[in-house]
Amino acid sequence: MSLGKVPTHLLYTKTHEWVRVDGDKVVIGITDYAQSKLGDVVFVELPSTGDDFDAGLSLATIESVKGVSDIYAPISGSVWEVNEELEDIPEYINEDPYGQGWLLSLSIEDQTELDDLLTAEEYQALLEDEE
């Protein structure tokens, strides 16, 4: 199976979320590898703006035909914006996981937490280990 695209300008988690730093916020989604493992996404449950999460807590769930997956907060923060388009078009996650399939943005509370995330190279190595 293909490991999918791993864009070099993003950061990653071991649980297959991607993170794009955008000023004092981070935008979060799931990786190409993760979406291909999940298969057809049919429902996405997102938190409300203003909800606070500690790093590592489940902040969203994605239901595919095959099963349900938790999405974990890569860093601590409060939800700034959610991708409301996913309500009607959850398939964006399959079709464009790094673009229109973004899930939400979080405000950054502690910059140092970003240091714990994986680089593209490290994430690619993790995928090769998993397969």
Partner: peptide, 10 residues
């Protein structure tokens, strides 16, 4: 095969 490239829904 669980599904092919087009996916379960299709």
């Amino acid at each position: 095969p669980l599904h092919y490239k087009s996916g379960i829904l299709e």
